[in-house]
Simulated scan of single mutants.
Amino acid sequence: MPLGTVDRTPPPFFKQGPSALSKLLVLSALAVLLMVVDARRQWAAPLRATVAAVLAPVQWLALQPVRLGTWVGHHVGSLNEAQQAAAEARSELVRQAQRASIVEHLAQENRELRTLLGMRERLPPNARGAEILYESPDPYSRKVVIDQGQAHTIQPGSPVMDGYGVLGQVTRVYPTTAEVTLLIDRHQAIPVINTRTGQRSLAYGLPGEAEGRLELRFESVNTDAEPGDILTTSGVDGIYPPGLPVARVLKVSVLDGSGFARIECTPMARMHNTLHVLVVDPATDGRRPPQESRP
């Protein structure tokens, strides 16, 4: 063998290969790629199911000491008695809470009925009682549904009151129920008169506030209105009987450069959490459409 063909370079002391950083970058990219493919294609689901099936006996074996301790603890007499006493105490607490809620509900009904009886003495004899079933789920309107309808001779346009003032007006009538649009609905309007000055106005719903308010629009800056003035129905529309309490003036402000005043009012009626109401037949026996304004 010729000496010129012999490799005279010394062998490396350690076997050389890719650097650690290169391995880290390649493996990280591969891991991200596998996660993306698994999220898109769910290719690793069978693998995970297989691993879970293989590890199930190991998990079961690891849980046995815990289950044994729990079983022993639950069979200790004092603990069992304590648990039974706690269960009885919870049951009694639930019963007491139910009784308290029923008593509070009955007390609220009693207060409302007493107030309604006082209000009914000032109304025409054709007023009838009704119960509010629920509020309308429409988030863009303020309406409630009562348990009286065509079968109870409820007419469209009938004023609805609680024990404090006008609550709204019947706008739709069904066989056994009716829909009442509250005064604070943005499409509702009611003619009113200031009991102190005798000035007539038109009150519109202003539902933007948390509790809902009314607004007197197109009032001159020289209008004679003060906070605390009481507004009642004027009766000019032929639907609402005159003299029903509607609202109290809350704030009077002047709109800059418009020549008009902004008058906000708080409804006399409770627009929330009312249980019982009075429905009064309209003054025109329903021959006129409901007083509802749609801008």
Results as ranks from 00 to 15, higher is better:
Arg248Gln: 15
Tyr134Pro: 13
Arg114Phe: 09
Thr223Glu: 09
Gly235Thr: 03
Ala261Phe: 04
Arg270Ala: 02
Pro57Asn: 06
Val144Leu: 06
His152Ser: 11
Glu81Asp: 09
Ala56Met: 05
Glu215Ala: 10
Gly165His: 05
Thr153Val: 09
Arg99Cys: 02
Gly257Asp: 09
Val279Asp: 02
Ser28Phe: 13
Met161Arg: 04
Arg200Tyr: 00
Arg172Cys: 06
Gln42Met: 10
Val249Gly: 03
Thr233His: 03
Gly17Asp: 08
His74Cys: 01
Ala39Pro: 04
Val37Arg: 08
Asp162Asn: 03
Pro18Asp: 04
Asn222Tyr: 13
Val173Ser: 08
Thr177Leu: 08
Ala130Arg: 03
Glu104Gln: 10
Arg8Trp: 06
Gly286Trp: 00
Asn222His: 15
Gly235Gln: 00
Leu33Glu: 02
Pro125Lys: 05
Leu216Asn: 07
Gly208Trp: 06
Ala49Trp: 03
Val36Thr: 12
Thr176Arg: 09
Pro227Gln: 12
Lys23Leu: 13
Arg114Pro: 04
Arg8Pro: 04
Ser220Gln: 12
Leu34Thr: 10
Ile154Val: 15
Thr153Asp: 15
Met161His: 07
Asn222Ala: 15
Thr171Lys: 01
Ala29Thr: 06
Pro57Met: 09
Met268Asn: 08
Ala62Arg: 08
Asp229Val: 10
Gly228Ser: 05
Ala44Met: 14
Arg287Asn: 11
Pro267Gln: 01
Gly4Glu: 14
Arg99Met: 09
Glu226Trp: 06
Ser91Leu: 12
Ser293Phe: 09
His75Gly: 13
Glu219Met: 15
Gln59Met: 02
Pro242Cys: 03
Lys15Glu: 14
Val221Met: 05
Ile239Val: 11
Ser201Trp: 07
Tyr174Leu: 12
Gln42Phe: 11
Ser28Glu: 12
Ser258His: 01
Val6Asn: 01
Arg122Ser: 15
Gln148Trp: 03
Leu116Glu: 10
Leu30Arg: 01
Gln84His: 07
Gly77Gln: 10
Ala189Asp: 05
Glu121Thr: 08
Leu214Pro: 04
Glu215Met: 11
Ala86Asn: 05
Leu216Ser: 07
Ile146Thr: 06
Gly69Val: 10
Val54Ile: 13
Arg217Met: 14
Ser19Asn: 12
Val58Glu: 00
Ser28Tyr: 05
Ser101Tyr: 07
Gly73Asp: 13
Arg262Phe: 14
Ser158Thr: 06
Leu255Gln: 06
Ala261Arg: 03
Val37Pro: 00
Val103Leu: 05
Val254Pro: 00
Thr5Ile: 04
Asn194Tyr: 13
Asp185Gly: 05
Pro245Ile: 05
Ser220Tyr: 07
Thr195Val: 14
Ala52Lys: 13
Met271Tyr: 00
Asn80Arg: 15
Gly235Lys: 03
Thr223Arg: 02
Arg114Ser: 14
Gln84Ala: 14
Ala127Phe: 00
Asp229Trp: 11
Leu27Thr: 09
